[in-house]
């Protein structure tokens, strides 16, 4: 019988690259207050509700998000399994309608910001100084179109530059995704993902106990001050995902 953690990861990896699937799972487990080493079957319902809160940050399209949660939900005891767990996991997401019973679906809607609308503005692969500038420009342009004023445009562009530069300086390869948030509130999300060595102690960096020669600590702490929300998921060897959001006031 495959490990429950592996099964959940398998379901998530149909939607994300492996490194990011792990980051998403960790983030959800943390939100759900669950043990992040080993998931028991009885934890699954808690995990599903944690995922419902976490996933909007990662999967913008509500339909696709529903599918992804449906896949994890099906791992719960008593839920009909769409596929035997031994079937090969497709690397590319398979489109299928989520089999959530009607009464469940409505309760899901109640918890999940299901009216949460968003639109991907673009992805910049970060491998050179030029890409940093591109991420910065894309963030500014998206912020401007959303109606942010010049000062906030500048803050948002600075954050994109900061996050992209961290990828360039510390990992050398990664992605910056810019998303326009629309419902319930308009805003912008900048997500920086890499699969590098990770930050050993995020808390230390954010508290100001760590300061690198190139000023990374300052950059991340500064980023937090410029945005409304900042979420960092990192673990040694497993890469780093930073999600920063700013909402229109």
């Amino acid at each position: 019988m495959p490990d429950t953690t592996e099964e959940v990861l398998g379901a998530l990896s149909q939607y994300f690259p492996a490194g990011i699937a792990r980051a998403v799972l960790r983030s959800a487990l943390r939100r759900g207050g669950l043990d992040d080493e080993r998931i028991e079957e009885r934890d699954l319902s808690e995990l599903v509700s944690a995922l419902e809160r976490t996933l909007p940050m990662y999967i913008v399209d509500p339909e696709r998000r529903g599918e992804c949660i449906g896949k994890v939900r099906r791992l719960m005891p008593g839920e009909a399994r769409a596929k035997p767990p031994s079937s090969p996991r497709p690397r590319v997401a398979v489109r299928e309608s989520p089999r959530i019973p009607a009464d469940r679906a409505s309760s899901v809607d109640a918890q999940l910001p299901s009216n949460f609308g968003a639109r991907a503005a673009g992805v910049v692969r970060v491998r050179s100084a030029r890409d940093v500038v591109q991420a910065c420009d894309l963030a500014r342009e998206t912020a401007r179109k959303l109606g942010f004023f010049l000062l906030d445009q500048t803050k948002i562009a600075t954050v994109a530059s900061e996050l992209a530069r961290n990828i360039l300086l510390y990992v050398g390869d990664g992605e910056v995704r810019i998303t326009a948030l629309e419902v319930p509130r308009r805003g912008i999300q900048i997500m920086a993902v890499d699969s590098g060595a990770g930050i050993p102690d995020v808390g230390l960096v954010m508290d100001g106990g760590y300061r690198s020669r190139t000023g990374m600590g300052m950059g991340l702490r500064g980023t937090k001050r410029l945005m409304d929300e900042l979420d960092i998921e990192s673990r040694p060897g497993a890469g780093t995902t930073v999600v920063a959001r700013k909402l229109l006031s």
Partner: peptide, 10 residues
């Protein structure tokens, strides 16, 4: 210059 991040400022 319309954007200065921590690295460029340094």
């Amino acid at each position: 210059v319309d954007t200065l991040d921590s690295y460029l400022t340094r």
